[in-house]
Design a protein around this nucleic acid. Sequence first.
RNA 1: GCCCCGUUCGUCUAGUGGUCCAGGACACCGCCCUCUCAAGGCGGAGAUCAUCGGUUCAAAUCCGAUACGGGGUACCA
Length: 478
Amino acid sequence: MRFAPSPTGALHLGSLRTALFNWLAARASGGAFLLRIEDTDQGRYVPGSEAQILESLRWLGLQWDEGPEVGGPYDPYIQSLRTGTYREHGERLVQAGAAYWCTCTPERLAEMRDQQRKAGHPTRYDRRCLARQDEVARERAEGMPAVLRQRMPGGVSRWDDLIRGEVSFDNADVDDSVLLKSDGFPTYHLANVVDDHLMGVTHVIRAEEWIPSTPKHLALYAALWPEQAPPRFAHVPIVLGEDRNKLSKRRGARNVLEYRDMGYLPAALANAMALLGWSSGTEDEVFTLPELVERFDIARVNAAPAVFDPKRLDALQGLHVRRLAPNELDEMLAPWLPQATAEQRRQLVPLLQERIVRLADAADLAAPLLGDAPWEEGVQFPPKKVDTQTAAQLLDAAVEAVESGALDDVTALRERLTTMLDECGVKARDGFRVLYIAILGRPVGVPVFDAMAFLGRDVTLQRLRAARAMLDNAWREP
RNA sequence: GCCCCGUUCGUCUAGUGGUCCAGGACACCGCCCUCUCAAGGCGGAGAUCAUCGGUUCAAAUCCGAUACGGGGUACCA
C-alpha cells in the first residue's frame, strides 16, 4: 500500500484520509506502508510542503515503512530523482508499440478538442503524429519539442475495484495521454505505474478522481509487464465540505497542522477521518489508531462521497480527551499551560479533563487560576436573583471563613455557605455565582471551591475582598 | 459536449431478499444529576430508503430508465 502525495501544498483532510486508509490497510494486513513524493510538476512545486506533509503524517502517527528519510529497498522515493527510470520505460513502450512521439502544438490540440466537443465526440488526441512517425523523428532531431504519448489500445478495460466492484470503460473514450513531457519529466500516469511496479506495490488506494485514468494505467501495466497481474485498485470517495463541494483551501478547509495547532488530538482527528466513509459494522465509533487497525477493512469503505462535519470531530475529540489517563493529559497539556508548574498542572488536570474539547480550551479555563482574573466584559454583579445585601453577607462570611483556615476543607466551607444562603432565601446555585465572579471573573468555569483551594488563602482573600469592595462602591453611587 | 462514479434522518452511517412501517452516532430539544460550566444518565423529534417501472409470494436490499449530485475530460496530480 502506498501514499503518494505531490508536494504542491500542505496536507489537507482529503489527502489525509487517503493516507490514513492506506496506512490502516497496510497495518491491518501486515503489509508495508510506502510513502513516495510525486514531484514531477515543476510548475506547481511548493517549497517546504514536502516537509510539512511528512510532519503531518508523523504527528498523526502514520509512520511509513519505506520512503523519504527512512529509505528502503527501492530508494529514492522521490520521483524527481528517478527521471532516468521513467525515460527507459518510455523507450520500452515505444518499442512495444504502446507509445509514440508527438510534436503537436498546444494550439493545435486545443482547436482539435474544441471541434470534437462541438461534434459531440469524446475529446481525445487524433493520432496525427502516430501516422507520421518518421517525420516526427526528424523534427525531434532538429530540436522540436516533443512529448511521448501512450497509444491506448482498443477494447474494454475493466477491473474489480475493492470499493466499487466491477468498473469498466470503453477504451475508445480514453485519450492517448502524455507520458513524458517535453521538459523530460514524466506525467503521473507513467511515473506512478513504473514506480508502483518497481516498488512492489500490491494495492493502490487512491482518491476517486483517479477512476477515469485507471484504464490508462492498466494498459501501461499490460504493455510493460504482460506476464504479471496489475495491482488491485481501491478508489476512495472524495471528502466534501459543508457546501457539498470538494474540500478546498479557498472554502476554509484547514490543513492537518492547523488542527494540531488548535489542540486536537491526533487520535481524535484520525478517528473522525476514518469514520468518513468507513464504519466498523458495530455500534462502536470511538477508536484509537491501534483499535482502528484491528477493525479496518478497505472493502467496508463506502463508495459515496462524505461531508466532513467539524462538530463530529469535536464530539470525538471530547471523548478521546476524557479517555486519556490523567498523566497522559497532563503531559499533553504542558505546551498549552507554559506558566504552570508541574505540580499546578497535576492539580488542574482533574478540573479540566471533563471541560475541554480542544487542548487550547485548557488555557482559557485555567487562565484565572494561573494569572489575574479580570472581570469579563459586561458581567452582571451581583448576579440575577441575588440582592446586594445577600451578596455582601456571603462574601463577608467567605472572607471570615477563609481567614480562619476553611480552605483546608472546602466541602465543609461549601456546606456552611449553602446554609447561610438558605437562611437568606437564596438558592445556592444562584448565590454561588457571586463567588464565581469574584474568583474567576465570570459566572462559569472550573468548580469555584476547588479554584479557591488551588489559589490558596492569600489570592482567594484578595479576590473576595475586591469583589466585596465593588458592592460598597455600588452602594455609594446608586 | 463526451465518459465514469454515486444517491438510507440536517450530517456520518448500519443494513447484501423476509427478523426494518429502517438501527446507531453527531447536531437539536426536554428531563434527571448538580456550586456554575461541562461531563454523565434518560427520553423526544427527525428518513414515504432520489423518482418511476420491472423481477419476486416478499425489495432499502436484484434489474432498467429518469432525475439530481460529484469526478474526469491538461505537456496538474
